[in-house]
């Protein structure tokens, strides 16, 4: 009834491929079973790095503006864009600052290290414990479904177009089995020098 992680609903997924990464989210904002908006994206970008946030919607918004602020300051101070690994540590320490009164979010970081060209994805719990993964990261109310489908569909070294198909199929089929997530999706395919954003149509129920 009053679990903050499932109050508003939502799902997010990141996958690594060959010299590319993908991150995707659904668009639903709800209050329990009632859908309020079908245009509530949960993936944001700060320079070259992408951050997906699921959980309590207010904290999703608060974290988004907090990280926009922090990454802007980082850019001014360092005179360069933040790398995904650095972002991961920034997210982790920011969340752990609130160890005993956490933000109710499950973040996902995805990006390509601009110096080394290596794909990077990772996930977190709500107090900042980092989960480094070689394959994929899931979060949100559809995480069980996402785990099952991603584990079945993902394979190593996918090219960008194949990664897009894998991410999209994983997300859409998982969303269709979760009443709290869905209503459209955003998918980002990130390579070293190009980002493609696609809007997916999905079931509107």
């Amino acid at each position: 009834m009053s679990n903050p992680f499932t109050l508003n609903g939502g799902a997010c997924l990141a996958m690594a491929g060959k010299d590319c990464v993908a991150i995707a989210c659904d668009l639903r904002l709800g209050q329990q079973a009632l859908t309020l908006s079908n245009n509530f994206p949960k993936v944001f970008n700060y320079g070259d790095v992408f951050l997906g946030l699921t959980g309590l919607a207010t904290d999703v918004q608060t974290m988004h503006s907090l990280f926009r602020y922090k990454v802007n300051l980082y850019r001014l101070r360092e005179e360069r864009e933040i790398e995904p690994e650095t972002m991961a540590n920034l997210v982790s320490s920011t969340l752990y600052e609130r160890r005993f009164g956490p933000y109710f979010v499950s973040p996902v970081v995805a990006g390509i290290n601009q110096r080394t060209g290596k794909p990077f994805i990772c996930g977190f719990d709500s107090i900042g414990c980092i989960d480094f993964a070689k394959d994929f990261i899931v979060s949100g109310t559809a995480s069980d479904q996402l785990f099952g489908v991603a584990e079945g569909l993902w394979e190593p070294d996918l090219e960008p177009e194949d990664l897009f198909e894998t991410v999209s199929q994983t997300l859409l089929n998982s969303l269709d089995r979760d009443a709290l997530a869905g209503w459209g999706a955003h998918v980002y395919i990130i390579t070293k020098d190009k980002v493609t954003k696609r809007l997916l149509k999905s079931r509107q129920d």
Partner: peptide
């Protein structure tokens, strides 16, 4: 639309309270 938890969304039509269930 903003709720007491400070979730906000720009939407074409909105309601609060029981009115949500009747009007949306």
């Amino acid at each position: 639309w903003l709720d007491y938890l400070a979730s906000s969304a720009e939407i074409p039509y909105a309601a609060h309270g029981y009115a949500q269930y009747y009007c949306l």
